[in-house]
Write a protein that binds this DNA or RNA. Structure first.
Length: 463
RNA sequence: UCCUGAGUAGCUCAAUGGCAGAGCAUCCGGCUGUUAACCGGAGGGUUGUAGGUUCGAGUCCUACCUCAGGAGCCA
């Protein structure tokens, strides 16, 4: 007997109608009367459920009618068309085999649950409509990003997770060590002796693959990373996690304009791909999570992203007819309230802000001719805020070395990075896309903890 | 880390300092086409923790814990 997925039933209905089939899945709800009943069966392949009809001709009718939500079943029967009903077809069960029963205390009910509650049962929340949709979109988005870069000849580089560079300046890092925390070996000055540690020196989890991937950029021209990243910041917001995934493309013989073009093309490709491949999920997000989502995404797919310089942004903010808690001031970083105002009120679409003061940006960003700004760009999107941060990189050896020193860093720690400028360095640029923030933007989900399977945040590492 | 708010039944929430409740879920019964099915009934509580004020505290006070929203840091 053929065992099609529920996705196949919905997508290629004609192939299965009026045929005997078997379907495996999990019970979302059971409704029964004296002699018959209905099961909503979800098999994980499709957003919608398959309706199973069963009656007392089943040998185990009583057991089936009393099934608890969450049970896993294998149902054999005839797939019939139901043109007058809410669902296009249903499975008339000839045999229902209970693979795994559930119990009355299955936590998921046939009602809306708060996301806070569902986070406490992350091992079960995948069986809800929302998380079924979120994680299918997440999977599709990851593939869409790979497709985008691979189609354009980019090389995917697996930059290291464990790194010895502890001065990338991107945030607090998690220490990686095999030393005994209760009695670490000490050196002659009473400090922890890391020469006896596994790597012979301090090691950390990566906060960015950028410096490493630049080496590949100088050999392959077009490269990207896509992998996990770790930040030990004590951040308690809906947009931060200690473990998240990041995509970091890096392109050679390219400047900031090329960089922004790439970022815009990528975001548009991503949106188009998800709208095409997950229409049911996106329609659900639009209806239940974020009314207006589809309109907004479709407009973005067509619009040109706005581009303004930091200096222009400050000008707009200074003239803004609203009072900010912190007034915008040239030389200071944009506050969240400023970014929201720009993307949500002024432009109402994604906007690149470029050319920030060098004092508030990283050492590797290319110094502009004005000597006070760098060729940086942040992409701000309505609802989520900063989704991409990038720059043209400083390719001039002397300037880079001087910037490292200006920022109080030690050039010796950046020997191999400086080498790239010494041996055939060239113009190049890149950016980092927060994968989870992209998923939030695509789905309208408001909390990063709800777009990561098992989120790691401050004081939280369940599951 | 800072600011604000919240913690009461499995879930979502009520309860003027005076008998701790509802809807949903669960269990039992009914129902021949349901769609978060419907109808009837039942069970279900150390009110986050520890102190304090009071004749009396879910309610007021203090500390702590947890969660949420906002901010900072950033992707």
């Amino acid at each position: 007997m053929i065992t099609p997925s529920v996705r196949q039933l919905f997508r290629e209905t004609k192939d299965y109608l009026d045929r005997e089939i078997a379907v495996c899945g999990w019970v979302r709800t059971v409704r029964d009367s004296r002699t018959f009943g209905f099961i909503e069966l979800n098999d994980g392949t499709f957003f919608r459920n398959l309706q199973v009809v069963f009656d007392n001709r089943l040998a185990n009718f009583e057991d089936v009618a009393r099934l608890n939500v969450g049970a896993s079943l294998r149902v054999k029967g005839l797939l019939v068309s139901t043109p007058q009903a809410k669902q296009p077809f249903e499975l008339k069960a000839g045999e229902v085999e209970v693979e795994g029963a559930s119990t009355p205390d299955f936590p998921l009910q046939k009602k809306r649950h708060s996301f806070e509650f569902l986070r406490e049962i992350a091992h079960l929340r995948t069986r809800t409509n929302t998380f079924s949709a979120v994680f299918r979109v997440r999977s599709l988005a990851a593939q869409a990003i790979h497709n985008f870069f691979q189609e354009r000849g980019f090389i995917w580089v697996h930059t290291p997770i464990v790194t010895a560079s502890d001065c990338e300046g991107a945030g607090e890092m998690f220490r990686v060590t095999t030393l005994d925390p209760l009695s670490p070996p000490l050196d002659s000055r009473g400090q922890v002796d890391y020469t006896q540690d596994f790597f012979g020196r301090q090691a950390n989890l990566t906060v960015s693959g950028q410096l490493n991937v630049e080496t590949f950029c100088m050999a392959f021209q077009k490269v990207y990373t896509f992998g996990p990243t770790f930040r030990a910041e004590n951040s308690n917001t809906a947009r931060h996690a200690a473990e998240f995934w990041m995509i970091e493309p890096e392109i050679a013989f390219a400047d900031l304009q090329d960089n922004m073009r790439l970022a815009e093309d990528m975001v548009k490709h991503l949106i188009g791909s998800i709208l095409e491949k997950a229409p049911e999920e996106m329609e659900f997000f639009n209806r239940m999570i974020d009314p207006g989502l589809l309109d907004r995404l479709q407009r973005v797919a067509e619009a040109r992203f706005e581009k303004i310089t930091y200096t222009e942004a400050i000008g707009i903010l200074e003239k803004a007819p609203v009072s900010f808690e912190f007034p915008a001031e040239w030389g200071k970083d944009l506050q969240t309230e400023h970014e929201r105002y720009l993307s949500e009120k002024v432009f109402q679409k994604p906007v690149f802000v470029t050319d920030y003061p060098k004092t508030i940006k990283a050492f590797y960003m290319r110094l502009n001719d004005d000597d006070r700004t760098v060729a940086a760009m942040d992409l701000l999107v309505p609802g989520v805020g900063e989704i991409i941060g990038g720059s043209q990189r400083e390719e001039r050896y002397d300037v880079l070395r001087q910037r490292i020193e200006e920022m109080g860093l030690n050039p010796e720690d950046y020997g191999w990075y400086l080498d790239l400028r010494k041996f055939g360095g060239c113009r190049h640029a890149g950016y980092g896309l927060g994968f989870e923030r992209a998923i939030m933007y695509l789905t309208g989900m408001g909390n990063i903890r709800d777009v990561i399977p098992f989120p790691r945040t401050v004081k939280t590492i369940h599951f």
